[in-house]
Design a protein around this nucleic acid. Sequence first.
DNA 1: TTGTATGCGTTATCAG
DNA 2: CTGATAACGCATACAA
Lengths: 339, 339
Amino acid sequence: MTVTIKDVAKRANVAPSTVSRVIADSPRISEKTKQRVREAMKELGYHPNFIARSLASQMTQVIGIVMPSSADQALQNPFFPEVIRGISKAAHEKRYALQMSIGEKENDIYERVVEMLQGRRVDGVILLYSRQNDKLMKYLLKHGFPFVVIGKPHQKAEQVTHVDNDNVQAGKDAANWLIARGHERIAFVGGNPQYLVTVDRQTGYAAALQEAGLPYRPEYVVHAEFLQEGGQEAMKELLSLPEPPTGLVVADDLMALGILKTLDEMGLGVPEDVSIVSFNNTLLAEMSRPPLTSVDIGIFQLGYEAAKSLIEKITNLNEPIKRIIIPHRLVERGSCARR
Amino acid sequence: MTVTIKDVAKRANVAPSTVSRVIADSPRISEKTKQRVREAMKELGYHPNFIARSLASQMTQVIGIVMPSSADQALQNPFFPEVIRGISKAAHEKRYALQMSIGEKENDIYERVVEMLQGRRVDGVILLYSRQNDKLMKYLLKHGFPFVVIGKPHQKAEQVTHVDNDNVQAGKDAANWLIARGHERIAFVGGNPQYLVTVDRQTGYAAALQEAGLPYRPEYVVHAEFLQEGGQEAMKELLSLPEPPTGLVVADDLMALGILKTLDEMGLGVPEDVSIVSFNNTLLAEMSRPPLTSVDIGIFQLGYEAAKSLIEKITNLNEPIKRIIIPHRLVERGSCARR
DNA sequence: TTGTATGCGTTATCAG
DNA sequence: CTGATAACGCATACAA
């Protein structure tokens, strides 16, 4: 029924191994027989069976994508489709397929990924998150499975190839943008502090304040999970302080969207009353009112480089550990005003 | 190095085939030896090799997800993560893994999916789109590959298992909502008319107008690709008509977000000047200003049922063709006012 | 440059 | 209830 390498071999009057070599485009086969074999393949409608190939070669040509737990609505963040586009591009260039693992709870994810790898379904994985004390990462390191992290690993960063931004600098740039426009009361609204991006950007924010001689006020730092209960309240508190901030550095565009809403409900206008700089420069930044000044972090590239690195690692196990920093740049739109 | 079924067999003093049966939990193995074998598996840290299993059993336990072409920014639509969550849930329940195919151009996608299927990497696929005259769908039908469409197939709908909403009724409901609130000039803003959702919702919209005795005005129907050039202009034209609409039925939340922006630029308020009903009821509907009255179409369920149906089809090739309709319901928020 | 033989880790078909 | 043994479709070391 399904046409195999043997059928092709017969048709072309060669041995199966020859056909195999033609598929691999081995240089040790004469052009003439290559032609003949290829013709036979066409005529029979041959398609190589990846499963069989994988079993024989011990390589699947599949890479696994590990998403953060879907319990939080993180998936709704436009960040993900965009990284995946980047991953997909690089993967396709090297003829790799993509397998995906989504789980509700952290432990779900762990188990599925272990199964993926131990079951030899994938050659390696890309982690689209990086959380504190990650059981999965430890497992991967221990067993020597090829993997790459997007973001900065909490532990053992020197042992883990990762693709990241200079989030400290990015946080600094964002705050400086506001400082340069005369703002002196600048708050930081971050996401889950379990994720290192948040921490890094906050660090940069704090550094910028310090360099500018502005005081760091703890009450100006809020970690609001906007999608959860309580997020709005935290924001409202912040803006109801005796000395409310005039500028906000916000962890990402999706959060900024939520904040715009909260501000609106409080009767505060952007940028007249409050200026905002956010991160990621996704579609949302363009579509929001006002459009958001946002730090572009090269999401597509993050994915692209991660996949490229992973594939290098897979094909060459001695590939050194790498840290790749994707440049960022602030994109000005309408959410910041001079003070 | 890697521990196989044979190692386990030796350890447990049984034949490899017995181990295989234990893995499959065959009833023809005594509980006693099952215990023994399972112990041996634990002790050796055995993990079954899916690739080998796939080759022998001719089943991969993997389903493919086919995304629409990423050339347009469709991927940015929160619809996708949510369907995928649904798919993932059902897949995991039946212990299936997910493989993903993203391509830039339509032809890209076609080729990758053919490769996926012919290469026996997946047992079947779910199409997350349904476009006119789809080459891929024809191919799938012709070759008898198991597949399920989310949305309504343009052609041969009777031959294709699909999971859809009653989009005509949904369109009607949306329009009626506005009509019931006294609106008489209601426009329809759809996405790409190549996609049947758009057409169906428009049909429902038109039917509602007719039933209410309102005139159908062609100039009130706009297909705006917001993310492209020209989208804004089309909207502005619509709203600059001598008799501009007071109500808008908008294809989805993401588009509605863009429209809110355009309206704002034109100095029009929602819902004071223009009322909006949109579709999908994603996170964006909650986060926008004002929050959007939106028709919830059960995105998660669409994915869940699709995956379930596909798996049924894979495991039982005689499974009949099905059409599954996921119920919708309009969720009221703040974007509609009485006239 | 090409062919032969063997193995990849399982499942499945026979026996027993 | 359990054990040999032959596929599954391809890659590769070794021959020729």
